[in-house]
Every structure is written in structure tokens, then in C-alpha cells.
Design a protein around this nucleic acid. Structure first.
Lengths: 338, 338
DNA sequence: CAATGATGCACAATCGATGGAGCAAATTGC
DNA sequence: GCAATTTGCTCCATCGATTGTGCATCATTG
């Protein structure tokens, strides 16, 4: 059982089983029947392998087979449910399809993203999914130079197939919900403020478009100062709102759960006027339902997005136009106690 | 730039640079000065490698070097902040130490956990950290049979060094906080109910001990029916509480954020009596602060735990006694508006 | 000018698993 | 009883990178 320092190899097993390494190999990888190894020897090898705690050296095996089965995924953060769910479901689906999933988290750091991508390619990943990458095109360029397929998730890129949420429509729907609820509950008709995110990001831009489109459909002008896309962090959102002391109805379109943290922090420190505030959030968190003033959240359809992404894996004629996946809008019941 | 189907190898580069594969190899892995390769050749090789989008075949490299630099981590779920933070920080710290982190999520499924562990060992992982594994001992047994170091995080095991939170003390502190706040705000002195988790789990057991100890210090008896450790899921917690309609003060010790979801769901559906409920939660979520009735949460010290775990990596004389890491208790301000 | 040392590189074995080719022994057919 | 077939294995080249060894070539010294 004990193996001192070196790991057991098929050569060790071969000696113990009094067989050849190739026989041992074929027993362990399941090709032994094809290779006409007797049941008796197969059983003996299996038993010894188990006793020795043998595990294939995938490095050697893949080197020889020239296939890795690795699909890599790059994810920016695990600090919200969205990316957590993506990582989790990705792993489940990849395993179900016989792949070996490797997920790595790159902190929204462009350099780290690129390094991680290179590393995954070094591990012979057969496909790389960049989720919410800051610079997806750089990654897909490197992938294509190395002959590796790459797919963009959650952010579109030019050089690789992309699967993204339909940010525009969902943002428009959410805007509509918040405005409707402001009408109903506060008899007030906007305009809303747009909080969080970065305008340079595709997703924020698309959501802002939906936000503005709904306003313009209603003939409501949105002052520039109402667009507070100051970045992705709770602190920044809270700071941006700091000076806002609602003495009249106020509505917020919150662009991510991380910004929502800032909004709620601001909200809970209000000494008065909280009852005049309504908001909705693009992205979902289970505790969102219970936050006072929250009228609804957008939940992105992770399962569908990943399904679409997996459909593209291995395909040569992958579409260049982004594949849009609709979101679910979750409207929360009217809370009369605010 | 284009490479058709096969990836570029050092042999391709050697031909292009009119040099030997070994020279190319040493240029690319930085040993060229030691091996007295001229600057001129080195520069030429580097340039060509870049042009060709070359990435080492780690499989081949590791096979030869017999070191992988891989540290594997098994995590049950990404559905709460705790494990998300662990995964994220683990990756950061591993990279900082020159390791290649591979994190995999095993859905609290014992079989999947074991399979994932075997897979990581097949990839020649040099160390495997099992976080919150359902059966850590099985994993560490396999690891030790294969000569791979294993470390338990968040759950203690017998056969490998373990780093865990000081569940007992933190639970006792949290119990104290909830009881104190019940006294202050409701002039009521318990006993509290214990909601969520599984008694068979070490962590739940340790927390229950702290919970009971604080009660017994105060001379308060806890009826058996108040221990509602019905599992890890929001639905189960909500169901367990279903029949509870508080017409008198009620206090809850909630054993995880996932159970907290159930508690809050129950809480928000109460038509009356909500103002009589106080609860606290073991585990932290940023939205917890804003939930009415929540008096405080325990935040586990992820950074310290991982530091301790990394200290153990590579050590032969690792301690067999679990290393206990204190938690932070976050008490929330009294909310007068409930 | 021969001996010595430094410089710059190539050769070939090696890591562990795989699979095509091939060979001896056992079995079958007539 | 001998050829033909089947069974049950072994041998060996191979994947790509690494590294100890060795061999020219050039510079230096006395």
C-alpha cells in the first residue's frame, strides 16, 4: 500500500502481476477485450492496481493519445451567485459529456486572464470558454494561433462564437417593472437612476440602452447625472449615492448584485425617505426577495447559456453573431409594510 | 500564424530556427544561459516561438520533470459566499506561490468527490485540499496510497492534517449574542431553536455543542424539539419552521446561509409576530446585514484558514490534531423599526 | 605551436502510457 | 496428424520536453 516517494506506474504493476506493461495498460484503460487479454489476467491486474492505489499518469497518457478532454473556463469572480452558478453547472455539464473541466478565477485582471488562458492551453485544453473576460478578443486570438477553440460567454467577442444574455431586452423589461411599480406605489413616473457597472463594458452599455429605450418609449428624459455607472464594487455604488437624500420619490436601476450591496448599504442608512425609494436589480440573489424597496430582479438563464455554449464546442462552422439568451424577470410582491 | 490542426512543438521551432530541439527547449524554459546558448540564438528562437503562438505541452514537460506544481482543491458548492471566497483566495495564494491551482466542485456528492480526487491525482497533483468533503478520510486514504499529500479544510479528518474553524467557540458566541439581544429587545431569555445542518456532520455537531453550552451556562434547558437540524437546503429549513407561528418571542440559531434563505422565506410570510423574532446565522452573506430580525452573523476567517493550509503543504511532520481558526462575529446594530 | 580552457551547440536517453505488429501456444477442422 | 485458426500475450516505437554527456571550434597561455 505504501509507496514511499514515487508513484506506482504500469511498470510496477506489470512486475507485480508478472505481465507486460502493455497488457497492464490495456486492462486499466478498458481496451483489454479488444486486445484479447484473458479475464484472469485482467482481474489480477485490476486487483493489484487497486491495492497499490494506482492512478494513471494523465500526463503520459494524454501525451501519447494526443487528446486531453480538458475544457477550460475562465471566470472573473465567485462573489456573486451568477458566476458561482456558471462554474458549478459548467462542471456538471462538462463531466456529463466526458470532459475534464478546469475552472479558474481571474479577478477581472486582464493580465491574469491572459496568463490563465495560456496556462490552460499549455495543459492542452481542447476548448476554452472565457466568461465575462475583460479582453476576450486577446484570448481568442491567442487560442486561434494555437489551434484551440475558444468561446465567449456573457461578453461578446469578435473572433470567437459568443453566447450572451439578452441584456437589452431584460434591462428594458426591468426598467418597465420599476417604473410601473413607482407609478403604482408612489404615483411617480421617473426618471430612474442607473447605478453601477462600467459604460465601456458591453453588458452595461446594452443594459443602459434598454434602460433608456424604455424611458424614451414613455417620453421621459433621463438627465446625464442619473447615469451613475461608476464601476463594479459595493463601495463605489454607495459613494455615488451618498449625497442622495430622498425627499421625493426615487427609483434605481441597479446593474449588478455587487452594486446592489452598495445600494442597500446606502438605503439602510437613510434616516428618512426610505419609503420613497424603489429599485430593481439586474442579476439575481436569493436574499434579494427580502430586501425592502426591491421590486424585482433579473435572473440570467445560466443553463440555457451553457447549453448553447456546449453546442458550439467542437463545431467548425460556429456562428459569428452573438447568440442571445433571454433572461427571466422576477417581480417581487408589493411590500405594504415599507 | 495558422497551424492547421496540430500544435506547434519544439521540433517545429527547431526546424524554423535551424537549431536543435534541446536548444529550443532550454531557450523556452529559461535554462539557456546555464546551457551556454548564445544570446543570438535565444533571441531568434523566442521570436519564432512568439510568431507561431507556441505554448509548451505541459503534459510532456511534466512527464519528463516529474513535478506538476498542481495543487488541487475540492469544494462542495459555489452557492454561498464562504466556498466562493475559499476558491477565489485559494487560487490567488496558490498562484502567488508558483502553483497551478485546480478547483473542482463536487455537489456534496461522496462518489463525485472521490472521483474528482482520483482525477486530480491522475493529473499528478502534488497536494489535494478537500474542503467540506462528506468523506474526507476516504479521500486522504487514497491520497496516501498514491503518495500524495492531502489536507482537510473546514472538516476534520483522521488521516490528514486538518484546518477548521473553531465552530464551538463561534457558535457559543453567536448563541450568546442572540440570547443577549432577545433579552434586550424582547425581554425574553430563550431557549433558542437550532435550525439547519446535519447532526452527523462534524461542524453541525460542534456548533450545536457551543449552542447548548451557552444555554447551559445560563441555566436554560433546550427541548429536543428545538434542535431542527433537518439538512442543508432552504426548503427544508422553511418546511421545518412551517408550523411555527410566533405569538411569543422566538429566537433562532441558523446554521448556514442556505438555511437562512429558508428562515427568511418563512419570516417574510408571517402575517403577524415577525417583530417577536430574532435570529443569527453561522456564516456570512453581505445581504445579511439588511435582513430584519437578523442580529448578527459569524464570518469564518478564510484567509487565515488558507494560510494555515498552505503552511502545511510540503511538510512531512504535519500536525494530526485539527488546527482551529477563530471566527469573526459580526453583530448588527439594533434595528428599531421592526 | 602545442596544451589548456572556454564557448556553443547537438545527441540521445528518459519520463509513463499506448497501440500496431508480431509471435508462440492452444484449439479447431478435416 | 498436420495445417489453419484463434487465443493470449509481448515487443517496441511513439508522443513532446528535458538534461547529462560529449564534441567541435575558438581563444588564451607559456
Amino acid at each position: 500500500m505504501e509507496k514511499g516517494t514515487k508513484r506506482t506506474t504500469i511498470y510496477d504493476l506489470a512486475k507485480l502481476a508478472d505481465a507486460s506493461p502493455s497488457a497492464v495498460s490495456s486492462v486499466l484503460n478498458g481496451t483489454w477485450e479488444k486486445r484479447r487479454i484473458s479475464k484472469k489476467l485482467a482481474a489480477r491486474v485490476m486487483k493489484i492496481a487497486e491495492e497499490q492505489g494506482y492512478a494513471v499518469n494523465v500526463q503520459a497518457s494524454l501525451l501519447r493519445r494526443e487528446r486531453s478532454n480538458i475544457v477550460g473556463m475562465i471566470v472573473p469572480k465567485y462573489d456573486n451567485r451568477y458566476f458561482g452558478e456558471i462554474a458549478e453547472q459548467f462542471e456538471v455539464m462538462a463531466r456529463a459529456k466526458g470532459f475534464f473541466p478546469v475552472v479558474t478565477c481571474t479577478q477581472r485582471d486582464p493580465e491574469l486572464e491572459f496568463e490563465a488562458a495560456k496556462e490552460l492551453i499549455s495543459y492542452q485544453a481542447e476548448c476554452l470558454i472565457s466568461t465575462g473576460a475583460t479582453d476576450p478578443d486577446r484570448i481568442s486570438a491567442f487560442c486561434s494561433a494555437s489551434g484551440v477553440q475558444s468561446i465567449n460567454l456573457d461578453l461578446p467577442g469578435k473572433n470567437a462564437p459568443s453566447v450572451i444574455s439578452d441584456n437589452y431586452s431584460a434591462a428594458k423589461d426591468l426598467t418597465k417593472l420599476i417604473l410601473d411599480r413607482c407609478e403604482e406605489e408612489l404615483s411617480w413616473s421617473g426618471p430612474l437612476r442607473f447605478v453601477g457597472g462600467r459604460l465601456a463594458d458591453h453588458n452595461t452599455a446594452a443594459r443602459l440602452e434598454g434602460f433608456l429605450s424604455e424611458h424614451s418609449d414613455r417620453g421621459i428624459a433621463v438627465p446625464d447625472s442619473y447615469i451613475m455607472a461608476t464601476g463594479y464594487s459595493a463601495g463605489k455604488a454607495a459613494t455615488a449615492l451618498d449625497s442622495l437624500r430622498p425627499d421625493e420619490p426615487t427609483g434605481l436601476f441597479v446593474n449588478s448584485t455587487i452594486s446592489l450591496e452598495g445600494v442597500v448599504r446606502w438605503y439602510s442608512q437613510l434616516h428618512s425617505g426610505a419609503e420613497l425609494v424603489r429599485y430593481g436589480c439586474f442579476d439575481w440573489d436569493p436574499f434579494g426577495t427580502f430586501l425592502p424597496g426591491n421590486v424585482g430582479m433579473v435572473e440570467q438563464d445560466v443553463t440555457m447559456m451553457l447549453n448553447k455554449a456546449f453546442e458550439v464546442i467542437g463545431k467548425v462552422d460556429a456562428p459569428t453573431e452573438p447568440i442571445l439568451v433571454p433572461c427571466r424577470l422576477r417581480a417581487f410582491p408589493i411590500n405594504l409594510e415599507i
